[in-house]
Simulated assay, not measured.
Amino acid sequence: MRHEKAARLLDLARMLAGSAEGMTLDEMARALEVGRRTAERMRDAVWAAFPQMEVVEDPPTRRFRIPAGLDGLFQTPTAEELAALRTAADSYRASGAEGRASSLYALERKLLSALRGAARRKVAPDVEALVQAETIAVHAGPRPYEDVTALAAIRTAIKGLSALSFRYEGGSTPGRTREVTPLGILFARSNYLVALEGEDPRPRSWRLDRMQDLRVLDRPAPPPEDFSLQAFADESFGIYHGAVEDVFLRIRPDRAEDALRWRFHATQTVRPEPDGSVTVAFRAAGMLELAWHLFTWGDGVEIVAPASLRQIMVEELRRALSVHDKAADLSGTLPLP
């Protein structure tokens, strides 16, 4: 128990050393999942151990931080942390995300090079043992396009609050040059730039693999103050945005356990029913992508609402059935591959 308390105090010290603006007592309490009074006692204990802690007045509150950081003695990563970093990098590389994989491999090298010789020799065998004992299941699907030069240009524009120009080989006018206010990047099966174009206040998504000749412009283009990339992503089931619908699904009892562990949407409400089924409710756009996903549940899911989603599902099933029915009829006359 005493060791656990010391570890918690060190966690708080790391938070205070890693925060440029400092943390309030309420933020400490939320981060540590303790009450405000406990957070106050923990702050005082850290302050006694690290007297360089300073107070930043931020009326009506006060913030606390350790401005010079912590000595390397307190920052040695564990084998589990380094193994998790390596696994994340391997996962990115396996999925085709070479740019992000390279960044994590570089971070791993920096962490290892910062370790003292004895600490590095002690942790390295454990890291390799953990990495060898854990592997990544690579799922079927498209590999995301991730050009390092394109990502660098987008990130430079975002950090500099600058406009971005590119030629887009998609949409209704392929080859047209766009000038946009970049808002962020959505990483998915295909990667997208989210940006504003012209006077249209609605964010739009552009696929990175269809963008050419990216240039950061010498023109300020700050994002709207109230924009949240996470909120934008949460509006849709997938990437495509449209009218937001109230979705209500019923999962059969034999798939209930799967549904209770499944995350359909960030806003979902999941409720077990007396008959053993599970109901799932959320608000989202992107009904076509949702229908594609629900198809993988087979007859384990019933679309209760909206009617538009049921209709899309029926149309997609009929289209697939017509193709495969026709193929079945011809199978007796066509040579097998």
Rank of each mutant, 00 (worst) to 15 (best):
F282P: 02
L334G: 04
Q268L: 05
L111M: 12
P306T: 10
V46A: 09
L334I: 09
D329K: 14
R319I: 05
A119C: 04
A114Q: 15
E4W: 11
N191K: 06
A68M: 11
T267G: 07
Y240L: 04
A233I: 05
G286K: 03
A221D: 06
T333Q: 11
I303Y: 02
L330S: 14
P182V: 05
M53P: 00
Q75S: 01
D147R: 15
V148H: 15
D126L: 12
A152L: 15
V55Q: 14
S331Q: 06
V304M: 03
G175R: 09
D126W: 13
Q75L: 14
T181P: 03
S95C: 09
S91Q: 03
S190G: 12
R109E: 15
R37H: 07
Q311S: 03
L32K: 15
E197H: 11
G242D: 13
P51F: 09
A101G: 15
R37I: 01
A188I: 08
E27H: 10
L107E: 13
E81C: 01
K326P: 01
I312E: 08
E245V: 02
M313I: 02
E146Y: 14
A256E: 08
S102I: 02
F248Q: 07
A221T: 03
R62K: 15
P274M: 12
A259V: 05
R8T: 08
L217C: 08
R178A: 00
R8S: 07
D254A: 00
T177E: 04
A39V: 00
P203W: 08
P67G: 15
V123E: 10
R310W: 00
M1L: 12
L183A: 12
L25V: 04
